[in-house]
Design a binder for these strands. Sequence first.
DNA 1: GACTCACATAAGTCTATGCTTATGTATTGG
DNA 2: CCAATACATAAGCATAGACTTATGTGAGTC
Lengths: 104, 104
Amino acid sequence: MSEVDIFKALADPTRRAVFERLADGEKNATELREGFSLSQPAMSQHLAVLRSAGLVAEQKSGRHVHYRVNPDGLAQLHQWLHRYRAFWPQRVDELKQLLKEMDQ
Amino acid sequence: MSEVDIFKALADPTRRAVFERLADGEKNATELREGFSLSQPAMSQHLAVLRSAGLVAEQKSGRHVHYRVNPDGLAQLHQWLHRYRAFWPQRVDELKQLLKEMDQ
DNA sequence: GACTCACATAAGTCTATGCTTATGTATTGG
DNA sequence: CCAATACATAAGCATAGACTTATGTGAGTC
């Protein structure tokens, strides 16, 4: 698991959508396919990428594999972003100001 | 500029390194090449990707082009991450606990 | 005005990646 | 125990992406 892997994993729109679905709650690979027009191997490969990036965790239960969000990946991402914190408070303030102005 | 573009832009190690150098301070394309073993067009293309992702901003000055971190991109990333905030406070607490244990 | 410098853009190549179909491997139900 | 289910893995293909060399463009220099 590294930052590169995390960014690469999230660079794919399908994987980002899968991750978002997992954020709603634990699901197995078959449930995750619902709504997507993807072959079963494609989903399996996407999950492998997310897993090796530390973004999701798996738990085998019989012949099902339950996937859930792994906070480790998000923590890594959060830590990376935090290095550049100096750049966004200013921006946040600007947004706050903008919202204040829009309210009037 | 979209989340996909941002993640894609940051998925490349070279672009992440370029971004990190820009975080240290505004630089032009030639200065950015120092230390990298990249052709000039390669750097130019990387900067184009970072620019279209909203991660850096350019400012032309004579025949030089000065690049700097654009907070907009980081703000987008921060906003994306914030959607999953529910997952990381728990993790942060775990890390704090771990650090506390390591101190002893 | 020719020349150089600091870039951007074009075109071509090679590798990475996302997809497919085909197959392998546990697990479970009849 | 045999078929079906729920996956993972393999192999092949087609597109995307990162790089190169070559060329274009506009701004400073002499």
